[in-house]
């Protein structure tokens, strides 16, 4: 258990250190996220009424597209550098590698989402400074990172990985995405526990299931 925890921390610290040094993935995800958020300004007039209807959708389209870019690179870089074999050669349990990569991706996504939040305020006047929104977004991002880490490992070896990842990700995370968009709408409507709280419970339940299943299935993906 302690060895697994140490190995997970080692993988996480390594990923964070490399990203802090190169900013390769963060740069790509942020650029993509800003473009995705910006494009919608041409599509409609951001009146309060329109914004209430489409705002949560815009936020999550930008977040999810960005997440897919980030998760695509989680294992792709390990494969391209040949370091995936280095991870596989170690006697560390596969779950340790999964959780190290999971927390690395989660950190990347949360940082990207936090940096993107002011853009919604500037572009649409949409303030995301809301405790319930923060809770819904954080919980949904945990689920996205959980399934994304697994799918990234699966897709990293595929030739058509850019197409494969969304094809696998969207159906698997559909309940999570519905919860995230609906929870965000409720949170921005000021509904609190009665609205956003109910969606949050659904998201958390789904998070637990995704983490358990993904970490278990990861061992099979890592082996050949």
């Amino acid at each position: 258990m302690r060895a697994g925890l140490r190995a997970a921390l080692a993988v996480y610290a390594k990923d964070v250190r490399i990203e802090a040094r190169t900013r390769e993935t963060l740069g790509a995800t942020l650029a993509f996220a800003f473009v995705a958020a910006f494009i919608f300004t041409f599509a409609f007039d951001p009146s309060p009424r329109t914004l209430a209807a489409v705002g949560p959708g815009i936020v999550w389209v930008a977040y999810i597209f960005t997440a897919m870019l980030g998760m695509n690179r989680t294992f792709l870089l390990e494969v391209e550098r040949g370091t995936l074999d280095g991870l596989r050669l170690a006697p560390a349990p596969p779950e340790a590698i999964y959780f190290g990569k999971f927390f690395g991706l989660l950190t990347l996504l949360i940082v990207t989402e936090a940096l993107l939040a002011p853009a919604f305020l500037v572009l649409y006047g949409l303030s995301l400074l809301n405790v319930w929104f923060a809770a819904v977004a954080a919980a949904a991002t945990v689920g996205v990172a959980a399934v994304g880490t697994l799918l990234s490992a699966i897709a990293a070896h595929a030739r058509a990985r850019e197409a494969l990842l969304p094809l696998l990700f969207i159906p698997l995370s559909l309940p999570l995405l519905i919860g995230a968009v609906s929870g965000t709408a409720a949170a921005l409507d000021g509904e609190g526990w009665s609205g956003a709280g109910r969606w949050l419970q659904l998201i958390l339940a789904f998070d637990a299931a995704l983490i358990v299943v993904s970490s278990w299935a990861f061992a099979f993906v890592l082996e050949e």
């Binding site: 390594k14 250190r17 490399i18 040094r21 190169t22 550098r81 040949g82 370091t83 074999d85 280095g86 050669l89």
Partner: peptide
């Protein structure tokens, strides 16, 4: 077991 393959299994930015 120690293994050295065709690729060096090192992180280039570390």
């Amino acid at each position: 077991t120690g293994y050295v393959g065709h690729r060096n299994m090192l992180y280039p930015d570390l």
